[in-house]
Nucleic acid binder design. Structure first.
Length: 269
DNA sequence: CGAGGGACCTGGTTGC
DNA sequence: TGCAACCAGGTCCCTC
């Protein structure tokens, strides 16, 4: 499910309900997520939440003692609802707040995670090697050009590697490559600096546009208010079965690294 | 070091 | 209608 726009949408949606609240109680119904939820989480009762922010696809919640690190995996979602609202299927964690509301984490496939660290969260093992944020100035033409040089891997794989740049998942990789006119299978090291510059631009524009529309809903993603993401209607190639919106040629689907890639055989080279 | 594939899960859709 | 096969927004970790 969630790529950067969906995580950003979720983070912004829950922040106003969490900031300044005290954690009254944790109800953990299933500890077996990507990594088992540690007992340390249960000890966070009584702590105040100071801030909620995002790094890559992680949602960070800083509290007095340290930081909770949440990840939505493929199927995770979060909502803030009254404490007594009905428990949904696969609602593995409920964090009850002093406001009378609760943050509810639902994740059918359990690829998500909830971790805790007392130290600088950005130094955490899972975060310290992450690449730059795609919407920041650190992600620019020079950076991508250097990352691609002498690299034989396909450009789509490279752009989806969070150690190169965070937040570009399977949907937006296909979309940004289409807008840049670059085939997903193109060898990274063989692309001119000028075209990589275009790709930097289309990655930023695609992610920004998706954030503004609340992300993309394919199956079950919903924003923290329960509404779907409206970027779905803006998809140019991902899961598109009709002809290309630009030239009319049939959009092709191939498999790369066990993931589906979509592209237009005429508009991309 | 880089590339590639398996692993972790449930549920919706597709096809026989 | 039933059931098996396949597919899905992520990413770590192991092997070569």
């Amino acid at each position: 499910m969630p790529e950067l726009p969906e995580v950003e949408t979720t983070t912004n949606g829950i922040r106003p309900h969490l900031r300044g609240q005290t954690i009254e109680r944790f109800i953990i119904r299933e500890r077996r997520l990507r990594w088992p939820i540690s007992e340390a989480i249960d000890q966070l009762t009584g702590q105040k939440i100071n801030d909620v922010y995002r790094r890559g696809k992680y949602i960070l919640m800083s509290i007095e003692q340290g930081t909770m690190l949440w990840h939505l995996g493929m199927s995770g979602s979060m909502r803030v609802l009254p404490i007594n609202s009905p428990v949904a299927k696969h609602e593995h964690v409920e964090m009850q707040l002093s406001s009378g509301q609760a943050l509810k984490f639902r994740d059918p496939r359990r690829f998500g995670s909830l971790l805790f660290t007392k130290d600088d969260p950005l130094e955490h093992k899972l975060l310290c090697k992450l690449g730059p944020e795609p919407l920041s100035d650190d992600f620019n033409t020079d950076y991508l050009y250097k990352a691609c040089r002498n690299r034989s891997t396909a450009i789509k794989s490279l752009v989806m590697d969070s150690h190169r740049v965070v937040g570009v998942g399977n949907i937006y990789a296909s979309e940004a490559l289409f807008s840049a006119g670059i085939l997903p299978t193109r060898e990274a090291g063989s692309i001119s600096k000028k075209r990589l510059g275009k790709l930097v631009e289309t990655i930023k524009n695609t992610l920004q546009a998706a954030i503004e529309k609340g992300g993309t809903t394919l199956q079950d993603f919903s924003q923290s208010d329960g509404k779907p993401g409206y970027f779905t209607q803006s998809l140019q190639v991902y899961a598109v079965k009709e002809g290309c919106r630009v030239c009319g040629k049939t959009i092709r689907k191939i498999v790369q690294n066990q993931r589906s890639s979509y592209y237009c055989p005429k508009c991309q080279s």
